[in-house]
Amino acid sequence: MIVAGREGGADGVRIVLETEEAMLLSELADQVDSVLLLGGDDDPALGRLLPNAYPDDATNARDFARYTRESLVDGKRQAAQSVRDATATERGSGIVEIELDQAQAWDWLTFLTDLRLILAERVGVVDEDADEADEQRDDYLRAAYEWAGIVQGSMLEVLDPMQG
């Protein structure tokens, strides 16, 4: 994975991924989209993505959720879909080069954040007596969590928050 500035000093960022990395990202983006589309109110991961704005006031909390939820879910799904589409690739095609302008880069930053919030929740809920299959799954989720953080951190080193 390489993250660099764009040629000619254009705003945004250029990302070069191995095919396997692009496929992984595309798959993860699809899963985040599914959590947003299908996740019920009892899914704690969804609670991380759509926090309670009034923890001490049930009426205001309900009103806030009613007025904001649809637009928040739409925005997060759109970000995930934008990453999924940009990384959709065929196996064996070598590397994948992606140019993002400032607005598209925001989609990636927010998607990577939502992804990490979901992964953290999924790993966190597994107890210590988990069997081997669970442990393997956890290792995979933890690796994806760390890697998503590295991609985001690399993007933030290149992007200028005052642009776009």
């Binding site: 991380r48 759509l50 926090p51 704005a53 001490d56 205001n60 806030f64 904001t68 928040l72 930053l109």
Partner: peptide, 18 residues
Amino acid sequence: MERHAQAMHGYGLQATVA
């Protein structure tokens, strides 16, 4: 303040209004 909280939630930060 509610608009800001909504924006923060959009960015994935935990925000409340009080």
